[in-house]
């Protein structure tokens, strides 16, 4: 209840893992940890879908629909009649950019 962040799009296929440990280095939330023979999912609910792990996995053992979790950008896209997922991160715009 009142927690929309339990589920996310992170998918990990341990059978493809080559144990290079790149994901454990790039994840800013400690989602992956060292395991026996392959990396283990330690805190899957902490994933913020930044996509660092997936783009740095040479074995393609990790899949995630990465994107910026910014309501400002998504509501803006929806109001302009665009797909919410297409919404670029708003930073970099002249006015009303969200992040810096």
């Amino acid at each position: 209840m009142f927690d929309s962040y339990v589920e996310n799009t992170l998918q990990y296929h341990p059978d493809r893992c080559i144990n290079c440990l790149r994901c454990t280095q790039v994840c800013p939330h400690g989602v992956f940890g060292e395991g026996k023979g392959h990396v283990e999912l330690m805190r899957p609910a902490a994933c913020m879908e930044c996509g660092a792990c997936a783009s740095n996995c040479p074995a393609r053992a990790i899949e995630v629909q990465s994107g910026v979790g910014c309501a400002w950008a998504m509501i803006g896209a929806a109001l302009r009649g665009k797909d919410m997922d297409s919404g670029d991160c708003c930073c970099g715009g002249e006015d009303g950019s969200c992040c810096k």
Binding site: S4, N8, A46, M48, G69, A73, M74, C99
Partner: peptide, 22 residues
């Protein structure tokens, strides 16, 4: 408050979208 999600370092897009719809 909801618009602050973009500034944070931990909100996932799936979660934010869920919040928007809810």
């Amino acid at each position: 408050a909801l618009n602050f999600t973009g500034c944070t370092t931990f909100t996932s897009r799936t979660g934010v979208k869920k919040e928007i719809y809810r």
